[in-house]
Design a protein around this nucleic acid. Structure first.
Lengths: 120, 120
DNA sequence: GTAAGCTACTTATCAATAGTAAGCGACAGG
DNA sequence: CCTGTCGCTTACTATTGATAAGTAGCTTAC
């Protein structure tokens, strides 16, 4: 966590960092990936697990995440057709990397509420 | 990285995760924090390091990040007054946690370009 | 058999956010 | 004076998000 490690990051790494975090952090995307990790497969399962999202945004986010290669859409020709969305290895890796944020969010919330200092 | 670890995440952890990632991943926020980590202090330094951001958005993002406790705004009564924005410990911790994304972004880009499979 | 409901969407409309451009007051340098 | 920097703000347009409703194809309940 030394500042020095960050001072000589090149431009390409910065752009990669920015686009990665903005993809993962775009509204609902994090929660959708987390839902997939928690076992959601069908459209309606995602809608249940991702609290507050509308059908319209869920549909467009799933399309976007599929395009980005984080989710795979599979149509099974049952009757009626059932469609399942599963995380790709890339998507699983991403959310695994991001998991420590949960702990950070907890600590950060405590700090803001109670004013407890945190070690640098 | 077992899926099982994610299946019994409680509601509170999900909400924390979502709000944390959406704060960090909101457009420009990641790049601004990274700029701070790379040594930016003055408004104009951030503007230079964060490629493509406008004055208007930089000002509003800095205000937001200050409100969230990730950045500290300090007014020094020189003539003319100079204002410096530094990362708080919380902000530094956050970007340190997120740093692995750079590597992920690289691997993910390669995978998308070349179709090379990645281990789960 | 018909009314109601589920599934995976799309369409329409409106509010919120982001992008672009310009300006502003206090200075400083030429 | 004229131009330029600093740290913003204001005004306006474009993009994105939220809310609500509609849809085709099917299943279930009465």
């Amino acid at each position: 966590m030394d500042e020095k490690d960050f001072e000589r990051i090149d431009e390409a790494a910065c752009r990669r960092f920015q686009s990665s975090i903005e993809l993962a952090g775009r509204k609902w995307n994090g929660a959708i990936l987390l839902a997939g990790m928690r076992g959601a497969r069908r459209f309606s399962e995602y809608r249940t697990l991702v609290d507050g999202i509308s059908d319209r945004l869920l549909a467009s986010r799933l399309k976007e995440l599929e395009y980005e290669g984080l989710i795979e859409r599979e149509v099974r020709p049952t009757t009626p057709v059932s469609i399942s969305y599963t995380l790709t290895p890339s998507g699983r890796q991403l959310i695994t990397l991001l998991q420590p944020l949960t702990e950070w969010g907890h600590a950060h919330a405590l700090e803001r509420a109670g004013g407890i200092a945190v070690a640098s």
